[in-house]
C-alpha cells in the first residue's frame, strides 16, 4: 500500500515537472512574440478619453467614534488629459461600534485626479485627488434594554482630498490604492458610549443646529479595467 502511494506521488511529481518544463518553453516563445512588439509611450493607456470601470473595497479609519469600518463599492473613471482624470464612485460602509451600535455610510461622489508625473509608460502612476460627494449616514444604537433601538440618520455633503497610486498590471487593468480624508459638511451625529450600572450603551446626539466638520480617513483598494476611449485626443 505504501509503495503504491509512493508510486503515485512519484508519477505526479514527474508529470508536473514535465509540464512545467513545457510551460517554460511556451513562455519563452511567448516572450519572443511579445518582444517583437515595441512598447509605446502609451502602453498603459493614460490617454485622454479613456473610460475605466472598477470595484473598490473601502476601510473607514479614525472616524468620530474611533471604530473601523469596511465597505464595498464601485467606480468609473474618465481621463481628461494625460495628467488629469476623474473618478466617479459609490460605496457602502458598515462600522461596528463596539457591539453597542452600528454606523452605516453611503457615499456617491466624484474626485478630480491630478498626475504630477508623466508616467504613461510606467507601472506606478501616483496621483493627488480632491473632490466632493453626497453622503447618507445612519447610526443605530441598540439601546438598553433590548429591543429599544434608536437611530439617527442624516443626508449631507462632504469634500475629500488625498493621495494614491495606480499599479498598472497590464495595458488594460490596474490596482489602485489611495488614502483620503473626508470632511462632512452637514449635521454631525455625535455618538458616545455610556456605562451605567454595568451596562454599556450608545447615546446619539444629532447636532442639527449648525454645521460640524466631522470627518474620517478612508483607505481604498480598487481594481479597474479600461473599457475604451470615449473620444480621441492627443
Amino acid at each position: 500500500m505504501k509503495k503504491l502511494l509512493l508510486l503515485t506521488l512519484a508519477i505526479i511529481i514527474t508529470v508536473s515537472h514535465d509540464s512545467l518544463s513545457q510551460d517554460v518553453h511556451e513562455s519563452n516563445l511567448m516572450i519572443t512574440r511579445c518582444a517583437t512588439k515595441p512598447a509605446t509611450a502609451k502602453t498603459f493607456s493614460q490617454v485622454p478619453g479613456m473610460f475605466e470601470l472598477g470595484v473598490r473595497s473601502t476601510a473607514s479609519l479614525f472616524g468620530d467614534a474611533g471604530n473601523h469600518g469596511l465597505g464595498s463599492g464601485g467606480q468609473f473613471r474618465i481621463r481628461f488629459h494625460q495628467q488629469m482624470g476623474s473618478e466617479w464612485f459609490a460605496d457602502y460602509i458598515v462600522t461596528d461600534i463596539e457591539g453597542v451600535g452600528k454606523r452605516e455610510d453611503a457615499h456617491i461622489g466624484w474626485s478630480v485626479m491630478f498626475y504630477p508625473f508623466k508616467s504613461a509608460n510606467k507601472r506606478f502612476s501616483p496621483y493627488l485627488l480632491a473632490g466632493h460627494c453626497f453622503d447618507y449616514t445612519k447610526v443605530t444604537s441598540y439601546g438598553v434594554p433590548f429591543p429599544a433601538n434608536i437611530n439617527s440618520e442624516r443626508w449631507s455633503s462632504a469634500i475629500q482630498m488625498g493621495i494614491g497610486t495606480h499599479y498598472n498590471l497590464n495595458r488594460w487593468s490596474d490596482v489602485s490604492l489611495s488614502v483620503q480624508y473626508m470632511t462632512h459638511l452637514g449635521n454631525d451625529i455625535h455618538t458616545e458610549i455610556v456605562e451605567e450600572n454595568g451596562l454599556r450603551y450608545l447615546t446619539l446626539n444629532d447636532h442639527s443646529h449648525g454645521a460640524s466638520l466631522e470627518g474620517h480617513v478612508l483607505a481604498m483598494l480598487s481594481f479597474n479595467v479600461k473599457i475604451g476611449r470615449l473620444w480621441k485626443g492627443k
Binding site: Q22, D23, E26, S27, V55, L221, F223
Partner: peptide, 24 residues
C-alpha cells in the same frame, strides 16, 4: 465578489493565480 486575478504562470496549461475581490 468581483475583482481581478493575477496569473503567475507563463501562459501554459498550468495556470496558478492570486487575486483580490471586494464583495457583498
Amino acid at each position: 465578489f468581483t475583482g481581478l486575478s493575477y496569473h503567475l504562470g507563463n501562459g501554459g496549461a498550468f495556470d496558478p493565480y492570486v487575486g483580490l475581490q471586494p464583495g457583498i
